[in-house]
Design a binder for these strands. Structure first.
Length: 415
RNA sequence: GGAGGGUUAGCCUAAUUGGUAAGGCGGCGGAUUUGAAAUCCGCUGGGUCAUAGGGCCCUUGGGGGUUCGAGUCCCUCACCCUCCGCCA
């Protein structure tokens, strides 16, 4: 969240940002309120000054045993005026604050108007037969059981069975090991629930409230992405400058209500309420954050390269960016059975937007400054699972396991 | 679920019956020095007004109350720690 002062001093940038992200917020009205707010502060400061002076005199008189009644009575009037002004100020600040919460992070200048595919990797191969979609294949092998999932939790809660469960677990372990051993991330296993402050800090709240599962009894939300716990590890803290960049990776289950999104997109593992994801999070010095974004993208891409899955990288246009992101790349895997590209990773630089909301700073000399936070999926499993099933299917319906996963699965094909 | 303890600035730590936040460390600047260490001096968060020197106000986890005046007293909420109970 931007401070009102920042908005005042960067009004044009903020206005352009909300225009690009197609949000409707009246910044001019906000600035008018700010002006009134500052007048009130001056007024209140002056009254308090009077009050403090008088308090000092009363204290002295009382200590010397003198009568201070008259002055004390005069102070009653000051007190009344203070209270009135303070109430108006409080109301005004409440309104200002409420508006500030909804101001999105402006896109980085390099973010385009139109979506652009900046890279394609691997070969979209032609099958000598009609490729089947993953749901058909998985049902045939009994490795996915949606009806059982529905009995337990409802529709679109996947249940993996047998080799399907093993393949899922293998994917997670393979990705974690890659990021830990080769890319130098520190492994974290965080809580899967997080409080409201965390959700506000990373920007899920207030905008995405309806998309999250809330446990009302405890005021806790189910983790929608490991970005939340990982980034909030340093909420309200100060990091040593020499420790930057900090790189964390974690596996978590992710829970999303996906309110109102039932429809064509929900076939099989396409869009589910609970899924697994290995996440990458970085805390960066502001000067380096765009270099860190590029290397984060490479770290995520390498997962797909090693799995031998054809993918492309898309630079999102500015009206597709999330509330908190300044720049985002999506990585999309080719699914021959479904005949389309599937988003498996979203890699973003939030600059200091989340750091402001969560108050995450680093110490530089005798002052503190907000860090830049970044994250990327490294990667989400369901659509990667789809990619493997559909790309590695054979004419007889069996599925070859990619080489790099075999030491984790212990088998090289399904069935 | 029960009982108790705690939260003060980047960090650590004080503050007789309520009297207007004291120190230390770290850091920054300066003096001294061939250089460094040591030593000494100054500064240290936020807001607001002002062209400026600077003024004023706020800041003891959040919110509210009592009072001329609250770190201190009262209420409430959050989080942390310890113990008891329950429990995979």
């Amino acid at each position: 969240m931007f401070s009102i002062r920042y908005v005042r001093e960067n009004a044009q940038k903020i206005k352009e940002g909300i225009r690009k992200k197609k949000v409707e917020i009246d910044i001019d009205l906000l600035l008018q309120k700010d002006e009134r707010r500052r007048k009130l502060i001056t007024e209140i400061d002056n009254l308090r000054h009077e009050q403090k002076d008088a308090g000092r005199i009363i204290g002295e008189k009382k200590q010397q045993g003198e009568d201070a009644e008259e002055l004390i009575n005069q102070m009653q009037e000051i007190k009344r005026r203070l209270k009135a002004s303070e109430e108006e100020l409080k109301k005004l600040e409440g309104e200002i604050n409420e508006t500030l919460k909804w101001i999105p992070n402006p896109p980085h200048p390099s973010v385009p108007v139109e979506e652009s595919v900046i890279k394609e990797w691997g070969e979209v191969k032609e099958f000598p037969f009609e490729p089947k979609d993953h749901l058909t294949l998985c049902n045939a092998h009994g490795i996915l059981d949606f009806p059982a999932g529905a009995r337990i939790a409802g529709s679109n809660f996947p249940l993996y069975r047998g080799k399907g469960a093993k393949l899922e677990r293998a994917l997670i372990n393979f990705m974690l090991d890659l990021h830990i051993k080769k890319h130098g991330y520190t492994e974290i296993f965080p809580p899967f629930l997080a409080n409201e402050k965390c959700m506000f800090g990373t920007g899920q709240l207030p905008k995405l409230k309806e998309d999250m599962y809330l446990i009302e009894q405890d005021g806790l939300y189910l983790n929608p992405t490991a970005e939340v716990p990982l980034t909030n590890m340093y909420r309200e803290s100060v990091i040593d400058e020499k420790d930057l960049p900090i790189k964390f990776t974690a596996y978590t289950a992710c829970f999303r209500r996906e309110a109102g999104s039932y429809g064509k997109e929900t076939k099989g593992l396409m869009r589910v309420h609970q899924f697994n994801k290995v996440e990458l999070v970085k805390f960066s010095h502001p000067e380096n954050s765009y270099n860190e974004l590029e290397s984060l993208l490479q770290d995520a891409e390498e997962v797909l390269q090693l799995l031998g899955l054809p993918y492309r990288v898309v630079l999102l246009p500015y009206d597709d960016l999330s509330f908190a992101s300044a720049k985002t790349y999506d990585i999309e895997v080719w699914a021959p059975g479904l005949g389309r590209w599937l988003e498996v990773s979203s890699v973003s630089n939030f600059e200091d937007f989340q750091a402001r909301r969560a108050n995450i700073r680093f110490r530089s000399g005798n002052r503190t400054e907000f860090v830049h936070t970044l994250n990327g999926s490294g990667v989400a499993t369901p659509r990667t699972f789809i990619g493997i099933i559909e790309n590695y299917q054979q004419e007889d319906g069996s599925i070859i396991i990619p080489e790099v996963l075999r030491k984790y699965t212990g088998f090289d094909r399904i069935p």
